[in-house]
Design a protein around this nucleic acid. Structure first.
Length: 960
DNA sequence: GTAATGGATCTTTTT
DNA sequence: GATCCATTAC
């Protein structure tokens, strides 16, 4: 990366006021430029950190951005208070907007129920779908009859309804008590019937489309024979043209009943979530929008003079409107690359960046409809382009750009406006001639094998990798295998492991379907209910008890007696039952009984304990959650161990934002890249068609049954395939590479690879043997031993606290004299107070909390609800928890924790808890910490020094 | 040129 | 079961 900005970087970093759209292709030094621009803005005499807001999408990107800004600010004299750099993810910023004025949501939507500041954001999508599911069941039972046939169909399509509603949220379309807000007052929900009609007309007339039309007629007649099509579709011969009135009724299909249903389900879902004080990411951003729209005070407090947004191609319409309302002055800089917009299926639209000016103008008009929310005219946007790529060789860059104009099927015509494509120049001069793009064709069954052979070839053959330290031979860690699908990733991974090639699968794994998941499930069932056969059977069969023995234990003999359960198991059950209220501890204990500690157990523990933290799961809840995950094939990410020298295997989507010297892209086969899959849902929403359902209730000759809507089938046929997003996905994959790219296809090469290669392919390498570790380049450090044993266990602080008189009540976070719900509310109010937000309700404790805050008013930095981690290296454990209040002074730290207890019975447990926080804070801020327990209900304060690390370690060991 | 037939292959998921 | 493409048939 250039130390001195190049001309285009400089132009962007120095254009400070006004609207800017920055086209930042891969490897163009985007972060560097944004950081420079940030510092330049801050250098202006009248600008403070609070005036600038920097938003991105991933936590990683936000953290990196913040870190690099801090680094630069440390070297730059700005004379400004730089403690509060505002850089974060869109979602976290939205969350803070929601916390700013949760009650506005109800005011706007007309609910009597109120959202509060202690609303919890549930990240786990399984839980969210389950919640929606039970809400939807109830809705259907109570009100299903009001919506006729469509409710009968949709009642079985809960998860599709959930997806649909989430898409509407992403588009900023919100139901009001009557009608819709956003989406042109709901008109968007009908799609574009005119366009549908005209392209349906083409089916009759345009050659090449005729076949599609005939297929459709055939399909409908076929379904008709099964009685699945309503009788109003005419009988047609294959070559007949479909009458215009038939096409018209398909395009302009009256869907008012369906829309009314979707509206009411959506509206009641919002109400229910508000009543339960429960947020998802989708709700969080809709509510943030609603609050900003309806509450001028919040707008005034949260808006800034300068806003910068990174990865702008990934914003949805809702987020763009939020961004506009966050501006005090017309100073907005959006940075992104439409060529890397690959999240269309999440209703992200690259039009935000491509059509930025027009969108901004029409959004402003819309948002300023009745009152001024955006206090300025949208200025003409300056478009700037970063044109030097410091990552890849020119050859790699050229091939990646070529992808953008390749048709995905024989008939597709790519319309690519050359104006919008800026060719990048390679600025990575070190590479020289050490670069290539290769194409290989092998029999389809050998694609994994060839992929692994190509990996081996790269680490053993005559290739040179150039990095900061100079030139050297490639090693496994330089290589990434990037696949379109998760299943191909797994296939390559299996082959690599089988051949002795170190590889890491960065994928989403069905963790609950593994042996680990199923064992845990069995134990949870058995703990929950001793007579749950499936619990005991699961445990015993894993222990290889014979079928006969198992049968005797779970099924009574003729006298009604059960055979005795092995004492070891019965004993363990007793032990585990005690940990019923500490799920993290319970789960870890199950795994440690089997000596299991690996990526999967790690992921299971993290998943379940974070789900527990946000919604207090009981054992029965966890059982349901695991079962649902197994049935629905739900997957969870597993963390990469980036230190080890291993080939990384990941999907194209996951590869975004990363770079590797060598990239191998296998399975460029027909139907795979580009993927020819469409949306298979019955109930769906897209821009062209609007909300539609492929199913309907059909009555034929007196029979009433669930059939297919021919109108929807026709409308679907009217939408042309567009492989643009597939092209962009491959563009992302190829542009990850710095030097070497190998693309592999099977017997049926896709249009993409044949277009790039001109159908010239290298011969397969066959079965290359993997090098023995010693034969690899001597420069390579010895391979890291299997990381499994050293994996760190993360335990919640509460799991090591021992309370007087037994563990706290079911689900309680901590003991509290006034009950756990009460404690939670006081904490939430205290967190609000710390951030300068007055409490909505006044608790007797509020005065005490204010006093505490007053006592730390002179601190440099006050943080509320800080997550902290204390690594205990001696025993391979990290303790995690949340600090209520952290006050940072130049020479010391104060760690506070509020307790609503009415006695000091649990002082020892709290002493341990705060000591963990204190040591964690000391480690982070490198200065001594003191602990303060604020018994806010009793109005007392207990101060002490943290207990030594060794004592904490031994407390942890007690529960391991 | 353009219908019919057969074979192969079947998603992606920041917070 | 949908959908692509290549092959065959006319």
């Amino acid at each position: 990366m250039a130390k001195e900005p190049n001309t285009s970087q400089k132009a962007i970093a120095e254009g400070l006021d006004g609207f800017y759209v920055v086209d930042a292709g891969p490897g163009t030094g985007k972060t560097f430029t944004i950081v420079s621009r940030y510092v330049n803005i801050l250098k202006k005499p009248d600008v403070q950190t609070k005036d600038i807001l920097l938003l991105t999408f991933t936590r990683n990107a936000a953290a990196e951005m913040e870190e690099r800004i801090r680094e630069r600010l440390a070297d730059t004299e700005t004379g400004k208070d730089t403690r509060l750099v505002q850089a974060g993810t869109f979602d976290s910023f939205c969350y803070s907007i929601v916390k700013e004025s949760p009650e506005s949501v109800s005011d706007f939507l007309g609910f009597s129920e109120k959202l509060t500041r202690s609303a919890s954001l549930i990240e786990n999508e399984t839980l969210n779908k389950e919640y929606f599911n039970s809400f939807f069941d109830r809705f259907n039972a109570d009100r299903g009859n009001d919506y006729g046939d469509i409710a009968v169909i949709s009642s079985t399509l809960s998860s599709q309804m959930y997806v649909l509603i989430n898409k509407l949220m992403a588009k900023g379309i919100v139901p009001l008590s009557r009608g819709w807000f956003g989406g042109r007052d709901g008109k968007d929900l009908l799609g574009d019937p005119d366009a549908i009609f005209s392209s349906l007309t083409d089916l009759n007339q345009v050659t090449g489309e005729r076949k599609k039309k005939n297929d459709l007629i055939e399909r409908i007649h076929g379904e008709n024979e099964n009685g699945k099509i309503s009788s109003d579709f005419p009988t047609l011969e294959l070559d007949d043209i479909i009458p215009a009135d038939v096409l018209r009724s398909a395009a302009y299909d009256d869907r008012s009943e369906l829309l009314r249903l979707v509206h009411d389900v959506y509206y009641e879902y919002l109400r229910r979530s508000v009543a339960d004080d429960r947020l998802t990411y989708g709700l969080n951003s809709v509510f943030a929008f609603v609050i900003l729209y309806s509450n001028a005070g919040v707008r005034g407090r949260m808006s800034c003079r300068y806003v910068m947004i990174d990865e702008f191609q990934d914003t949805n319409e809702n987020q763009m409107m939020i961004a506009l309302m966050l501006l005090k002055e017309p100073n907005l800089c959006v940075v992104g690359d439409w060529k890397q917009g690959i999240y269309g299926f999440r209703f992200v639209s690259i039009d935000n960046i491509i059509d930025f000016e027009n969108r901004a103008v029409s959004m402003r008009a819309y948002l300023n409809d009745d009152t001024e929310r955006i206090p300025f005219r949208i200025p003409p946007a300056t478009r700037l382009t970063l044109d030097w790529n410091y990552r890849s060789s020119q050859e790699v860059i050229d091939v990646s750009f070529e992808v953008l104009s390749l048709p995905g099927s024989k008939d597709e015509v790519v319309s690519l406006d050359p104006e919008t494509v800026t060719k990048l120049k390679s600025g990575n001069d070190a590479i020289g001639t050490d670069t290539h793009v290769r194409f290989v064709k092998v029999p389809s069954s050998d694609e994994e094998k060839e992929t692994v052979s190509r990996i081996i070839d790269y680490v053993t053959g005559d290739y040179t990798v150039h990095d900061d330290e100079g030139a050297r031979r490639p090693r496994y860690g330089d290589i990434a295998v990037i696949c379109r699908t998760g299943s191909m990733c797994r296939a390559v991974y299996d082959e690599a492991r089988a051949r002795g090639v170190d590889a890491f699968l960065q994928g989403d794994v069905e963790i609950m379907s593994t042996r680990e998941g199923k064992l845990l499930l069995a134990w949870l069932k058995y703990i929950n209910n001793r007579t749950d056969r499936w619990g005991l059977i699961g445990i015993l069969s894993d222990m290889e008890y014979s079928l006969e023995d198992v049968r005797k234990m779970v099924r009574p003999d003729s006298d009604g007696n059960f055979a005795e359960v092995p004492p070891e198991i019965a004993e363990l059950r007793k032990e585990l039952k005690k940990k019923k209220r500490r799920p993290t501890d319970l789960i870890s204990s199950v795994f440690s009984y089997y000596g299991l500690n690996n990526d999967v157990t790690q992921a299971i523990i993290t998943t379940l304990s974070s789900a527990h933290r946000s919604s207090l799961l009981t054992i029965a809840d966890m059982i349901r959650m695991i079962e649902r995950d197994i049935v629905e094939h739900n997957t969870y990410g597993i963390d990469a161990d980036l230190d080890s020298d291993a080939v990384l295997i990941q999907t194209m989507h996951k590869s975004k934002g990363l770079e590797y010297p060598i990239v191998i892209i296998p399975k460029l086969d027909q139907g795979v890249v580009p993927s020819t899959k469409g949306d298979a849902s019955s109930l769906y929403f897209n821009e062209a068609e609007g909300v539609r359902c492929t199913e309907e209730i059909v009555s034929n000759e007196g029979f009433i049954r669930r059939g297919l809507s021919w109108k929807t089938l026709l409308a679907k046929a009217a939408v042309k395939k567009d492989y643009s997003e597939e092209r962009r996905t491959l563009f992302v994959a190829v542009s990850r590479a710095k030097q070497y790219v190998t693309m592999i296809c099977g017997d049926k090469p896709s249009k993409f690879i044949s277009g790039l290669s001109g159908d010239e392919y290298l011969e397969p390498l066959g079965d290359l043997p993997a090098p023995a570790p010693a034969e690899r380049d001597r420069n390579i450090p010895a391979p890291v031993p299997a990381p499994y044993e050293s994996r760190r266990k993360v335990i919640g602080v509460h799991d090591i606290m021992v309370f007087e008189g037994g563990p706290p009540e079911e689900g309680a976070d901590e003991v509290s004299g006034k009950g756990m719900e009460y404690g939670k509310k006081v904490h939430a109010a205290a967190e609000g107070l710390a951030k300068g937000i007055g409490p909505r309700e006044n608790y007797p404790e509020t005065a005490a909390v204010k006093e505490v805050l007053a006592s730390v008013a002179d601190a440099d930095l006050i943080l509320a609800e800080v997550h902290c981690m204390l690594p205990l290296n001696g025993i391979g454990v990290s303790l995690s928890g949340y600090i209520d209040l952290l006050a940072l002074y130049p020479d010391r730290i104060e760690v506070h924790d509020y307790k609503t207890d009415v006695s000091k019975n649990n002082l020892d447990a709290y002493r341990l808890q705060l000591s963990v926080y204190a040591l964690a804070a000391e480690g982070y801020y490198k200065r001594p910490a003191r602990c303060v327990i604020d018994f806010v209900s009793m109005g007392e304060r207990v101060e002490f020094e943290p207990i030594p690390r060794e004592e904490i370690e031994s407390s942890v060991q007690m529960i391991l």
